[in-house]
């Protein structure tokens, strides 16, 4: 739900301000790849209506966000491709593919894709965080968006602890990826929490 909320916050921000200054389209592209790799099971496995609906919403809304930022004026006119230039194709995709291949529990296409998607998701926030560090001053809605985008994985960790004790659920790759992902946010959360506590604008060092 936090993940969904962060997407809705971003959509709302783009529609309201008609600007995507401070938003990394490259992060959304990473997520689009994550979703496409992971949700291949839409074609051969049914888990629940909720599960299917969320997958469809995640994929379609993420592609829509990319479309808005890259191609749809007036939002696309504000997209700064020079600032948002983190080369994830080299730094994230390659390593995620290699790690996915090495650490997959079995060498099947769905398993390798799923594993690569976990590793890629864990670092997908990097283009966004790096963009914000260049700009330093973060708009309120952008701050809320990034905070919810980080918080959802933290709540997964709580759920994994519960599931481990309640059902003996084990998911080593998911756990490791989730810890890396949440860890990358710790620094941002600190400055976010401080800005909320003191009621000031979020300014990154």
């Amino acid at each position: 739900m936090l993940h969904l909320m962060s997407i809705l916050l971003l959509l709302w921000k783009l529609k309201k301000s008609k600007s995507c200054v401070g938003i990394s389209c490259r992060m959304q592209e990473c997520y689009a790849i994550v979703f496409c790799l992971r949700y291949l099971d839409l074609f051969y496995q049914f888990i629940s209506v909720y599960n299917t609906a969320m997958k469809v919403v995640f994929i379609s809304s993420t592609f829509y966000l990319i479309f808005l930022m890259r191609f749809q004026p007036p939002v696309s006119a504000t997209y700064d491709r020079t600032a948002d230039s983190f080369p994830y194709e080299q730094y994230l995709l390659g390593p995620a593919a290699v790690l996915g291949f090495i650490s997959a529990e079995e060498w099947s296409i769905p398993e390798i894709f799923w594993t690569a998607s976990i590793w890629l998701e864990s670092v997908s926030i990097l283009p966004q965080l790096i963009l914000l560090q260049q700009l330093r001053e973060v708009e309120n809605l952008t701050a809320e968006f990034v905070a919810t985008m980080g918080a959802y994985r933290f709540f997964y960790i709580l759920n994994w602890i519960y599931r481990y004790f309640a059902e003996g659920y084990v998911n080593w790759i998911g756990w490791l990826g989730g810890i890396v992902q949440t860890g990358l946010y710790v620094d941002f959360f600190y400055y976010y929490a401080m800005s909320k506590w003191y009621g000031q604008k979020l300014v990154l060092p």
């Binding site: 993940h3 099971d41 496995q45 888990i47 629940s48 599960n51 969320m54 997958k55 995640f58 799923w114 997964y156 084990v170 998911n171 998911g174």
Partner: peptide
């Protein structure tokens, strides 16, 4: 069983 682990998370 572990071999039939369903990936029920998003």
């Amino acid at each position: 069983g572990k071999e039939e682990a369903v990936k029920d998370e998003l």
